[in-house]
Lab assay of single mutants.
Amino acid sequence: KLLSSIEQACDICRLKKLKCSKEKPKCAKCLKNNWECRYSPKTKRSPLTRAHLTEVESRLERLE
């Protein structure tokens, strides 16, 4: 599967780190437990900047 097509777990399953069936409108866990089942939009991760990478590398060197 391509990364862009990976389905996201519902908010509660993601928060509780449960295996989500990803069914809509309610996944199996939410249906069974009568929880409100919501699927928040995916958040875009910002790409690493060179400055951040350099900072992490220098912190790693100090720890070694």
Rank of each mutant, 00 (worst) to 15 (best):
K1Y: 11
K1I: 05
L2Q: 15
L2D: 13
L2V: 15
L2S: 15
L3G: 13
L3F: 14
L3Y: 13
L3K: 02
S4F: 13
S5L: 12
S5Y: 10
S5Q: 10
I6L: 10
I6Y: 12
I6C: 13
I6S: 12
I6E: 09
E7Q: 10
E7V: 10
E7P: 10
E7Y: 06
Q8E: 00
Q8T: 09
Q8G: 06
Q8W: 10
A9D: 00
A9E: 02
A9L: 01
A9F: 01
C10N: 07
C10M: 07
C10I: 00
D11S: 05
D11Q: 10
D11G: 01
D11E: 03
D11M: 05
D11P: 02
D11I: 04
I12M: 10
I12Y: 15
I12S: 07
C13F: 00
C13G: 00
C13W: 06
C13K: 01
C13V: 07
R14H: 04
R14Q: 04
R14I: 00
R14V: 01
L15H: 11
L15E: 13
L15A: 13
K16L: 01
K17L: 05
K17C: 04
K17H: 11
K17M: 02
K17A: 05
L18K: 04
L18W: 10
L18T: 07
L18A: 15
L18I: 11
L18Y: 07
L18N: 12
K19H: 06
K19D: 03
K19R: 14
C20S: 05
C20P: 00
C20V: 00
C20H: 02
C20A: 00
C20L: 08
C20T: 05
C20Q: 04
S21P: 06
S21H: 03
K22L: 06
K22T: 00
K22Y: 05
K22M: 04
E23C: 12
E23D: 13
E23T: 14
E23I: 09
E23N: 14
K24E: 13
K24Y: 15
K24R: 14
K24S: 15
K24M: 15
P25R: 01
P25N: 04
P25Y: 02
K26I: 15
K26H: 14
K26W: 12
K26S: 12
K26R: 15
K26V: 11
C27D: 07
C27Q: 02
C27E: 03
A28L: 13
A28S: 08
A28H: 14
A28G: 11
K29F: 05
K29A: 05
K29S: 06
K29C: 08
C30F: 05
C30N: 08
L31I: 12
L31K: 15
L31D: 14
L31S: 13
L31P: 05
K32T: 12
K32A: 09
N33D: 08
N33A: 11
N33M: 09
N33Q: 14
N34M: 14
N34K: 13
N34R: 12
N34D: 12
W35G: 13
W35P: 06
W35L: 14
E36W: 04
E36L: 11
E36C: 13
C37Q: 09
C37P: 02
C37V: 02
R38T: 15
R38Y: 15
Y39A: 06
Y39G: 04
Y39V: 09
S40F: 05
S40W: 05
S40P: 01
S40C: 03
P41N: 05
P41H: 06
P41M: 08
K42V: 06
K42C: 07
K42T: 08
K42P: 15
K42L: 10
T43K: 05
T43L: 13
T43N: 07
K44G: 01
K44N: 08
K44Y: 08
K44L: 14
K44V: 15
K44W: 08
K44T: 10
S46H: 04
S46Y: 04
S46I: 03
S46F: 02
S46W: 02
S46T: 11
P47Q: 03
L48M: 08
L48H: 01
L48E: 02
L48D: 00
L48P: 05
T49G: 00
T49Q: 08
T49D: 00
R50S: 09
R50W: 04
A51L: 11
A51P: 01
H52N: 06
H52D: 04
H52F: 08
H52C: 05
H52I: 04
L53Y: 04
L53I: 04
L53Q: 02
T54N: 09
T54G: 07
T54S: 12
E55H: 10
E55Y: 14
E55G: 09
E55P: 01
E55V: 09
E55K: 09
E55R: 09
E55T: 12
E55L: 10
V56A: 03
V56E: 06
E57L: 02
E57C: 07
E57R: 08
E57M: 03
E57W: 07
S58F: 14
S58M: 13
S58R: 10
S58V: 13
S58K: 12
R59F: 03
R59V: 04
R59N: 07
R59P: 03
L60G: 05
L60N: 07
L60A: 12
L60W: 00
E61Q: 13
E61M: 13
E61H: 14
E61N: 11
E61Y: 12
E61T: 13
R62F: 12
L63Q: 03
L63H: 04
E64P: 07
E64R: 08
